[in-house]
Amino acid sequence: MSGEQHTPGTSAKRSRTATVAELRPRYQADLAQGTERFFDRRRTDCPWCGSTRLRERLRTPDLFQHKPGRFFLDECQQCGHVFQNPRLNGAGLEFYYRDFYDGLGEKDLDGVFTGPGREKMYRRRAESLKPFDRTPKNWLDVGTGHGHFCATARTVFPGTAFDGLDFSAGIELAERAGRIDRGFRGGFTELARQELLGRYDAVSMYHYLEHSTDPRGELRAAWQAIHPGGHLLIEVPDPQSRLARVLGRWWLPWLQPQHLNFLPVANLRQELTALGFTVVAEEHAEPHDTVDLLGAVWLSLNAVAPPEDAPWLTTPTDRIHRLLRAALLLAGVPALLLATTLDRLLVKPIAHRLGLSNAYRVIARRPETPPG
């Protein structure tokens, strides 16, 4: 070690700088081949109902990480399904997920999932099962990330064993931290046919289906993992929210390029019924998250401010740009505070009545006996 003295935060800053420099060659090699290779061919029909009556709903760059690329959402005029078109392929998903939840972005995202109000939200999600099952023995949280929901849900159901499943390395972090009893890393559709078959009283998918390339397959996997009498809990963004149309690309739940499919609640109910589930609850007011106006202001600020240094940028961000970014974000603090207040005091109380809810929750039960 050198005898150099560091002010608080300097080592963390230098660590990020070194990490960015280390990652830059790989990202630049990826981008040298162009971003077109990250997409499947554009569809001419709806992946949910097959209709060819499509219209463009949204076009946007990456407003979160500023990774290169442009993304499009189409809406089916027959069934209302909204989907990314053209959709990211496997290479694209790997590229755009890289350093978002893990790696370079792990610290920031961990702060989001443990921020103010998150624990209360996780508790309400868990409590939504109580009217239908007060003592589930085992629960699988699909797309669990770092396992923060399970950690809070234990306080609601202290006798329940909580397992988690995720594609990312976050599942291993969640298991090491003791937030889940057992972690499974991989695809739900494959694991549900094997070691997870019929194991669970409850399976939850909180803001998971919108990330899936095959939502129908995920629902079939849930049917397989839940034993008769068990319950499936789903929460997803609501593409029919009026705020989604008003705010356009600045509506946070669009989360491009990661969110691939947006299901209107009628489509989800119909599919669950076709699989044999009985829908026992549908909620719109309570799942609404107070982030719409705050998210719109933040995304706007992030769009106009110089980007934070990142390995997918061609050249490192210099000191002048970093200072300018900090100044613009600081100047935006009053707008962020006002948006937060309006989200909580104005939008939240009237969200469901005016069709502004940004999410909905469905709870479905697998019958004790096979249907019909």
Rank of each mutant, 00 (worst) to 15 (best):
M1L: 00
H6W: 15
T7A: 14
T7Q: 11
A18P: 05
V20S: 10
E22A: 12
Y27S: 10
A29N: 13
L31Y: 02
Q33P: 04
E36D: 11
R43M: 13
P47K: 05
T52L: 04
T52G: 14
H66V: 10
G69M: 10
Q78A: 05
R87E: 15
F95S: 10
R98K: 10
Y101D: 03
D102R: 09
G105A: 14
G105H: 11
G111A: 13
V112Y: 14
R118E: 10
E119R: 14
K120N: 13
M121D: 12
S128P: 09
K130F: 13
T135N: 15
G147T: 05
G147W: 08
H148N: 05
H148G: 00
T152C: 10
T152Y: 03
R154I: 03
T155Y: 08
S168W: 02
L173K: 14
L173Q: 14
R176S: 10
R179S: 00
R179P: 02
R185Y: 03
G187S: 11
F188D: 04
F188A: 02
E190G: 12
E195M: 07
L196F: 07
L197Q: 13
S204T: 14
M205W: 02
Y206C: 00
Y208T: 14
P215W: 07
R216F: 05
G217P: 10
L219N: 06
P228C: 03
P228L: 02
L232V: 07
E235K: 04
Q240M: 13
S241D: 01
A244L: 01
V246L: 11
W250P: 02
H259M: 09
L268E: 07
L268Y: 08
L272D: 13
E282N: 05
T290Y: 00
V291P: 00
L293Y: 03
L294I: 10
G295F: 10
L301P: 06
A303H: 14
V304P: 07
P311K: 07
W312V: 11
W312M: 11
I320C: 07
H321W: 08
R322V: 01
L323Q: 07
A331T: 04
A331D: 04
V333E: 12
P334V: 07
A339K: 08
A339Y: 03
K348T: 01
P349S: 05
S357W: 00
T369I: 06
P370S: 15
